[in-house]
Design a protein around this nucleic acid. Structure first.
Lengths: 211, 211
DNA sequence: ACCTGAACACCGTTCAAGT
DNA sequence: ACCTGAACACCGTTCAAGT
């Protein structure tokens, strides 16, 4: 959620821009990813970004149209590390789906409020997040009727984002990002359980596909 | 999402408080539900509520500790119309789950941003939303191993809230709350599809239960 | 082309002081 | 007990004017 303590102070180590050379859109996005990763969405304000980059707030609006547009780019960058999987053979589709989702989870789980950012981006520009398109491709490949593919994708996506959000909430209450070993585990188990259940359900609903 | 156009103007027909008698917490909650229902979460500010109630902002903080606490009560009120279902017989558990979820959807689908409000409430005070507890009871009754019951509940809840949010987004883009007939339908179909898939998947994962 | 300075119209929360 | 008035520390966005 976007609520919760305004953590306030705390600067990012590197200023991301020194002296004289012009600010770039890339720098702006990278700084936004940095602030999000370290302090969360509540601290990710345009004014905070301007401070971090040693510019006035207005300057940011020469590079992006709005905060929302910036967040779409932030979301895309968060998923940028997930590699495009090879097209799976017919029998291996459920496995390919599961491993894509696992990669998405890994990319997002350490970034606070990442689920919300992805959801916003997804609702603003459904095409901006390539990996979510791959998911649809896989479901089509599995032989799910075209008009139900979006339903199935939503089901998987809601589970992914929901279980990331739940895990981060839980961690927040437990205080800090889990200093001791076995940091994830419970969230990971819940995540895998859901994937298993949904894939099994899909296999029953669409007897044509492989599972 | 909490973003989107600040709709701005537009007052609620009845002032909810006239003249001299003291403001009550109930009035505050009801007004909040009213503003949410008509204008959405972006317009639901403490200052707006104060205006609507003809009080100064500070007055609200005598009745509630914070905006978040108020929103928990708003969430509870939104689900207040859902009646406690009778305990189902063993064979009818999946049906009871499906119909409870349908009732929850019906209670929330017309209220903008209701999914976010429920999610916030659920994360702040997991016990405040009784109907979500009933869901867990049903899953236990279905013979799901205790430590997996929360996983299954999350799965269903994420689908419910996710499909409500998706439906409202879609409607927002389509302009206004669908003036012509057949207003829901698509969202309803996606919703039922997901329920079916999840329940089938649960039945496979836990052969003991009935489906 | 790129940025500053300043404004506009907002936020949530607190708290001394009034009744 | 219940509320006002005023402040504190913020927001996102716009835009004339500077370089």
């Amino acid at each position: 959620m976007f609520w919760g303590g305004r953590a306030g102070g705390g600067y990012i180590r590197c200023r991301h821009r020194l002296g004289s050379m012009a600010l770039t859109r890339e720098q702006l996005i990278d700084t936004a990813v940095g602030v999000l990763s370290e302090f969360g969405l509540a601290d990710l304000s345009m004014r905070r970004l301007a401070r971090e980059l040693n510019v006035q707030v207005g300057a940011l609006y020469w590079h992006v149209k709005s905060k929302q547009e910036l967040l779409v780019d932030v979301a895309a960058k968060l998923l940028g590390s997930v590699p495009r999987p090879a097209t799976p053979t017919a029998g291996a589709i459920p496995l390919a789906i599961a491993s894509l989702l696992q990669q998405l989870r890994t990319a997002l789980i350490t970034v606070p409020d990442s689920a919300e950012v992805i959801q916003l981006a997804q609702s603003m520009r459904p095409d901006a997040l390539a990996p979510l398109g791959w998911l649809m491709d896989f479901l089509e490949l599995a032989g799910i009727p075209p008009h139900e593919v979006p339903y199935a994708r939503h089901l998987l996506l809601n589970h992914l984002l929901g279980s990331i959000a739940a895990h981060q909430e839980f961690q927040a209450l437990a205080g800090g990002p889990e200093t001791d070993s076995a940091p994830d585990e419970l969230g990971q188990e819940a995540f895998e359980y859901g994937i298993r259940v949904i894939l099994q359900g899909l296999a029953m609903e669409h007897p044509a596909n492989a599972a």
